[in-house]
Computed example of a mutant assay.
Amino acid sequence: MANNKSSKKRIEIAERNRQRNRTYKSALRTLMKRCFTACTSYAQEPGDQTKDVVQTSMSAAFSKIDKAVKCGVLHRNTGAHQKSRISAAVKKAIEPAAAVG
């Protein structure tokens, strides 16, 4: 346990930051999973409505990733890696459907 005032304050600040980072990462994982789910549903059943869902989920995930990098929750290379994963999944889902349809 902390012995002086400043170290107690640092412990409180670290806990506050940990909670904030945890909520950011949780929301990020949720948005990424939602995007991947939308990609698989579009690949199974292509259509304009599902394509819009894919695009909106991708842009929401990109936005959250950029904000997390800006706040320092994620390293910029990690953010770039995750954005690359999402865009590759979207491209893979949309390209074959465009060739067929």
Rank of each mutant, 00 (worst) to 15 (best):
57 S>I: 00
17 N>M: 11
3 N>F: 13
58 M>H: 10
19 Q>F: 06
16 R>V: 09
9 K>T: 03
40 T>G: 02
49 Q>Y: 01
42 Y>A: 00
34 R>P: 00
92 K>N: 08
36 F>Y: 15
4 N>Q: 08
70 K>I: 03
46 P>Q: 09
85 R>V: 12
79 G>W: 08
50 T>R: 13
37 T>Q: 14
5 K>R: 07
65 I>P: 06
72 G>Y: 11
81 H>Y: 15
60 A>E: 05
43 A>M: 01
10 R>P: 01
13 I>Y: 05
88 A>F: 04
21 N>R: 12
4 N>C: 08
50 T>G: 03
75 H>Q: 15
3 N>Q: 12
45 E>Y: 11
57 S>M: 03
24 Y>E: 14
51 K>W: 00
99 A>W: 04
74 L>W: 15
17 N>A: 07
32 M>W: 00
87 S>K: 10
88 A>D: 11
87 S>R: 12
88 A>V: 08
7 S>E: 11
97 A>Q: 14
24 Y>F: 13
31 L>E: 00
93 A>E: 01
93 A>D: 03
66 D>I: 04
62 F>S: 04
5 K>V: 07
15 E>P: 01
94 I>E: 05
58 M>R: 13
6 S>N: 08
86 I>E: 03
42 Y>C: 00
8 K>G: 06
39 C>N: 01
33 K>D: 10
84 S>F: 05
99 A>V: 10
39 C>G: 02
78 T>N: 13
63 S>D: 01
95 E>M: 04
50 T>Q: 11
70 K>R: 09
20 R>V: 11
7 S>C: 01
83 K>H: 10
11 I>Q: 10
96 P>E: 08
60 A>V: 01
52 D>A: 10
20 R>Q: 12
75 H>G: 15
81 H>Q: 12
23 T>G: 05
24 Y>W: 14
13 I>R: 09
28 L>Y: 13
95 E>N: 04
98 A>N: 07
76 R>H: 15
13 I>N: 07
24 Y>N: 13
14 A>V: 07
1 M>S: 11
45 E>D: 09
56 T>F: 04
96 P>F: 04
82 Q>W: 12
43 A>S: 15
74 L>M: 10
12 E>S: 03
38 A>R: 00
80 A>M: 07
96 P>N: 05
52 D>G: 04
57 S>C: 08
93 A>G: 06
46 P>T: 12
